[in-house]
Design a protein around this nucleic acid. Structure first.
Length: 645
DNA sequence: GAGCACTGC
């Protein structure tokens, strides 16, 4: 600890914090900022008036850093020094220094908006610009004004964006603490390679791994060290991931082929050489279409430096950049496009609405990098369609309940509705199956089928209603058979009679903003919550055309993903009469009214009559003859309005 | 008839 660079700056840091409510610290890798800042402020007495807290974007970091600090202070973890992450709170009444994920701090501020238990809040790794960190930055700016006398906020960031953060906080002081990295020599290539292995990163890694193996095998005996070639990415089973971390046998070199998981999340010790492709695969959301895509994009300078830094942790290293220095300097952005500018914001906007911040217009919330108006309006529209906010933008009681649930809004809305229909347990299963990347489903690739010794097990088929129902059936099967592999034999007969009607209705309400209508003369679907666009049921779906070759008329989908074509992933058949209220809501939607708190309109639409309204919408659909014309009328009004735009 | 970066409550 004594030889950490930051220690020499203690006096300066503490003085600056004493005199200013907000301080930005530029702490380079290896500076010791994550473990030392909290201890300095503790020594200065800041833990006498409250807890000193440090946020981290990842759970593992919160746990490992707090463990380290407890060790350095010679206390038991969970007492004076503790941490809080999802599912695990290791703090006590004696806790003075607390590490937590930024998601946990956001949750805490729901029940205690002033965060009075804290005397200091340190937002660590703010340069990573996670969605939660960005929301916290905006909230901190408000909070220091309210608690100017007794709250200190520290933000740690990278060289390239420190100025900007300081500006955001009214030109607060900015301190730089050097890191402790061994020198890394940078080599640029003259030009970019013409062909990259494959657009799919995983395929590329597999090929790269086997190419490396071939190459090593073709070398003459004794012409180089022995080599172990190891892949490292998130979808690798943990025991395979561990292999990348064990030191190689003597006279043997490790080649680790990694995704950006090795950029920040994991640190492999002993890395001396880094080869940087200059690219990253990034998920993006398009608010105009509601569509996600996974694109290969250029990295930022911060990312490039982070990658290079991985080579100099234990001794001097070298970094080979597969791009010219001109590209680095002229083409790369300084910092990564913040997540807030490439995600769906429904959840975050609902969270902000639920805080009841006085006089807040979501469209004018003070973000470090504001998301586009379009993105915010998309979020508002989605929230309105699932009854989380009313037509004046006020949060509803349903919305409040939703905000408390740690789920994406469409799923939390589904759960609330399912509870009304008495199918909560089923809905919980579906929500859990959708939230976890299901591994109960066997791979369906031709490759796997060829490799399998035995014919594939008969899996439940969703009984013609689609993927959500299949997920539920699979889980039920699994559960009923004591998680036994030989389950599912006479399963189809038992379950096919169910229509899962209540559950599907709950899903139709939760996913009202993710609704699609089949085209009249073919099996393509048109999205209804966004400007009409043609999308298809993803080929991996269990929902198949019926005996007449047709899909259901209406489906809700879990997400839109643009790959080779626009697809709906995870679709559920819904009934026409459930769609009417949604179309009617879309029809009277005025997105301009949704951004404010609806002040002045609160008396007109109370929580009480809001739920009455919902009931009425459900009653409207009971007269069968009227249904057809109502659907028609609502659809035509809706489509006409869209046509005008 | 597809394609699997990474986090988090």
């Amino acid at each position: 600890m004594a030889n950490l660079p930051i220690v020499q700056f203690e006096k300066k840091i503490v003085e600056t914090v004493d005199q200013n409510p907000v301080v930005v610290i530029i702490g380079e890798t290896g500076s010791g900022k994550s473990t030392q800042l909290s201890q300095m402020l503790h020594r200065k007495g800041y833990t006498n008036s409250g807890i000193v807290s440090v946020t981290q974007p990842r759970r593992v970091a919160a746990v490992s850093v707090s463990r380290r600090v407890a060790q350095e202070l010679g206390v038991r973890l969970g007492e004076e020094v503790g941490y809080a992450i999802r599912f695990e709170d290791r703090t006590s009444e004696r806790t003075q220094i607390k590490y937590l994920t930024d998601g946990v701090l956001l949750r805490e501020s729901l029940s205690n908006p002033e965060l009075n238990q804290y005397s200091v809040i340190i937002l660590d790794e703010a340069h990573e610009r996670s969605l939660n960190t960005d929301i916290l930055l905006g909230l901190m700016k408000r909070l220091v004004r309210r608690r100017a006398s007794n709250l200190k906020v520290l933000i740690t960031s990278a060289t390239l964006d420190g100025e900007k953060v300081s500006k955001f906080f009214s030109d607060c002081p900015l301190l730089t603490v050097p890191g402790k990295l061994f020198p890394v020599e940078i080599f640029y290539s003259k030009e970019r390679p013409i062909s990259y292995l494959e657009s799919s990163l995983k395929t590329a890694m597999e090929k790269l791994v086997s190419k490396l193996e071939d190459k090593v095998r073709s070398l003459e005996e004794g012409s180089c060290m022995d080599a172990i070639i190891l892949p490292l990415h998130g979808s690798l089973p943990p025991e395979m991931q561990v292999r990348a971390f064990s030191p190689p046998p003597p006279n043997c070199r490790r080649f680790i082929v990694a995704t950006n998981i090795a950029e920040t999340s994991l640190t492999v010790d002993g890395v001396v050489y880094v080869i940087d492709s200059g690219y990253v695969k990034q998920r993006q959301y398009n608010p105009a279409t509601g569509m996600y895509s996974l694109d290969v994009v250029q990295i930022s300078k911060v990312q490039a430096n982070q990658r290079a830094g991985r080579a100099g942790r234990t001794r001097p290293g070298k970094c080979y950049r597969l791009y010219p220095s001109r590209v680095y300097h002229d083409d790369f952005l300084d910092v990564t496009v913040p997540e807030i500018q490439r995600s769906s914001l429904a959840g975050s906007v609902l969270y902000l609405k639920s805080l009841d911040l006085p006089d807040i217009d979501i469209l004018k919330f003070d973000f470090l990098d504001p998301p586009s108006t379009e993105s915010l309006e998309d979020a508002l529209k989605q929230l309105y369609l699932i009854d989380a906010i009313d037509e004046n933008g006020s949060i509803t009681s349903i919305g409040r309940t939703m905000a408390e649930l740690p789920l994406e809004p469409s799923l939390s809305r589904t759960l609330i509705e399912a509870n009304e229909y008495g199918c909560l347990s089923q809905a919980l299963t579906v929500a859990a199956m959708l939230s976890a990347e299901t591994n109960l489903l066997p791979g369906r690739s031709k490759n796997n089928e060829k490799k399998r010794k035995y014919p594939p097990l008969e899996l439940p088929d969703g009984s013609g209603f689609g993927d959500h129902i299949q997920l539920l059936q699979i889980y039920e099967c699994w559960d009923e058979n004591d998680y036994d592999i030989g389950w599912c034999k006479d399963y189809d007969l038992q379950k096919r009679r169910q229509s899962y009607r209540n559950l599907r209705k709950a899903l139709s309400i939760g996913f009202a903003s993710q609704l699609a209508e089949r085209m009249r003369h073919h099996n393509g679907f048109r999205t209804l919550g966004f400007k009409p666009q043609l999308v298809q049921v993803h080929p991996s779906s269990v929902l198949k055309p019926d005996d007449d070759g047709l899909y259901p008329n209406y489906v809700v989908y879990h997400e839109l993903i643009a790959t080779s074509r626009p697809y709906m992933r995870n679709v559920c058949a819904v009934e026409r009469q459930w769609v009417i209220p949604i179309l009617e809501k879309l029809d009277k939607l005025d997105v301009r009214k949704l951004s404010g708190g609806g002040l002045g309109h609160v008396e007109e639409i109370t929580e009480g009559n809001k739920s009455d309204l919902l009931k009425k919408e459900a009653v409207i659909v009971t007269a069968p003859e009227e249904q057809e014309s109502k659907i028609q009328a609502a659809r035509e009004r809706f489509l006409a309005r869209k046509g005008k735009k």
